[in-house]
């Protein structure tokens, strides 16, 4: 929106790096735990090692890829349904600073 440099704790490259490192480490630990903990299961599919991790990852990638493709035929501009098209978000904006 405007060209100022992002400031704040969560915009420091170091912070982001550390958050991601911890996150990756947790992911690895969760997969390792799968081999230690004896899961009680109800279906054969669940026998696949780290099934839930794999499924979660693949499901979300497929979800996002299909959704992006859907944009090609579903997306219209913001005023698509506006009959009198006199409204845009800037005009509608009603900000409250009490």
């Amino acid at each position: 929106m405007n060209n100022h440099k992002p400031s704040g704790f969560f915009y420091q490259p170091n912070t982001i790096r550390w958050i991601l490192r911890i996150f990756y480490a947790l992911c690895v630990l969760l997969v390792l735990a799968d081999f230690i903990v004896h899961r009680h299961i109800l279906t054969n599919i669940e026998k696949i090692p780290a099934f839930y991790a794999l499924y979660g990852f693949v499901a979300c990638v497929i979800l996002v890829l299909i959704a992006s493709q859907m944009r090609k035929f579903l997306m219209r501009d913001e005023q698509y349904y506006d009959t009198d098209s006199s409204e845009s978000i800037t005009e509608k904006a009603e900000v409250n600073h009490d």
Binding site: C27, R39, A53, G56, F57, C60
Partner: peptide, 13 residues
């Protein structure tokens, strides 16, 4: 465990 795996790897995606 399974729920955390599902969620963390969705986040990873």
């Amino acid at each position: 465990l399974t729920q955390l795996q599902l969620l963390f790897f969705s986040a990873l995606a």
